[in-house]
């Protein structure tokens, strides 16, 4: 009994301590919400040293989680990093605040083509973090033919049949299928989606696994010979197994841009602004790209980037390949996507 009491006492003390340590923080704080290993520790250290602001990094697993949490209103984050497709939703729902990007110190470093993107046409809410593409990667040791077409993925040659892996979530799978079929993204046309369904059902017997975890391991171990993948991740896989090649399909490629925004009700708006300005400096953004291995939108950051990153084929999209940034889809197309996906995995 006495032991139990001490244990209980100790537990309460630990809990008290933990609550106190989160409550004691007031100013000089910045709470960032991002993916794991997607923020360079070196970068955070540099920012803390330069500004004296104490940064706390929290983790989420998907943009949907982020959206649901922001919608509930119970957060406390100062910088969040959603995918571009989610930004229009967040703006419409009033979840992010205006920051007037043009007035930020270092705005001139932002590449022109990212200053007024479709998802934030007046440049009022977001600063680009990292961007990349979604395509597939194949082991060229097994197949001589060209892989610069989505046909390789959706109507695979015998060499890849039975060892293909696709993502778990429907949006990007269907997105690529729509590119291949030359149909518009976020499609709500029943006939178009019927074609998508037919394509995916015909591809299904050749698919070994539908999953987005542990992609690198499956590719490098040879468990799967062809895998849907993001470009920065693909680069890591190629470094481990040089015969792996990231495809730049001539039909087009899916693009995504993760953007930094300040949620409504952020407690440390000023610190968040300082962080955004810090990230607009080429040498800082380069630290981030070197760590996460994705491209950024800051001019001059190339100079500070690792050589292998600058010359990486995964990061340099050929000029004749169109990068398509799909929109946050409307209700009708989301329903159709869901139906197609349920049929495919039935």
């Amino acid at each position: 009994m006495a032991r139990m009491k001490t244990l209980l006492g100790a537990t309460i003390a630990v809990a008290g301590l933990a609550v106190a340590s989160t409550a004691a923080k007031a100013d000089g704080e910045l709470f960032i919400y991002n993916w794991t290993d997607y923020t360079s520790p070196e970068l955070i250290e540099k920012f803390e040293k330069e500004t004296g602001i104490n940064v706390t990094l929290d983790i989420y697993d998907s943009s949907e989680t982020l959206l649901a949490k922001l919608q509930s209103g119970a957060t406390g984050y100062d910088i969040v990093v959603p995918g571009h497709a989610f930004l229009p939703i967040m703006i419409e729902e009033g979840l992010v605040q205006e920051i007037d990007v043009a007035s930020l110190k270092g705005y001139e470093n932002l590449e022109e083509r990212w200053r007024n993107p479709d998802w934030d046409p007046e440049g009022r809410y977001s600063v680009p973090w990292q961007w990349g593409t979604t395509s597939f990667m194949a082991d060229t040791a097994l197949y001589d033919g060209p892989i610069d077409t989505l046909e390789t993925l959706f109507e695979p040659p015998p060499a890849y049949q039975g060892s293909i892996a696709m993502f778990r979530a429907p949006s990007e799978v269907i997105g690529l299928a729509l590119i291949y079929l030359d149909k518009p993204q976020c499609n709500d046309n029943v006939e178009d989606m019927r074609e998508v369904q037919k394509l995916l059902l015909e591809q299904r017997p050749h698919v070994k696994i539908y999953n987005s975890d542990g992609i690198l391991e499956r590719l490098v171990s040879g468990d799967t010979a062809m895998h849907m993948i993001w470009n920065g991740y693909a680069m890591r896989a190629r470094e481990q197994k040089p015969t792996l090649k990231y495809a730049m399909p001539k039909e087009g490629i899916l693009g995504w841009m993760d953007v930094m925004v300040v949620p409504s009700g952020a407690k440390n708006r000023d610190n968040a602004i300082r962080f955004l300005e810090f990230m607009l400096q080429p040498e800082n953004m380069a630290i981030q790209s070197n760590f996460a291995r994705y491209a950024n939108a800051v001019k001059g950051s190339q100079e500070f980037m690792d050589e292998d990153l600058r010359s990486a084929p995964e990061l340099n999209v050929p000029e004749d390949v169109e990068v398509i940034f799909p929109w946050a889809c409307g209700e009708e197309s989301i329903r159709l996507y869901d139906r197609v996906w349920t049929r495919v995995l039935q």
């Binding site: 998907s62 989680t65 429907p170 989301i334 329903r335 996507y337 996906w341």
Partner: peptide, 13 residues
């Protein structure tokens, strides 16, 4: 389990 999880994430239903 996947079906329910999907409805609260990608399928937004």
């Amino acid at each position: 389990g996947s079906l329910i999880h999907m409805q609260f994430s990608s399928s937004r239903n």
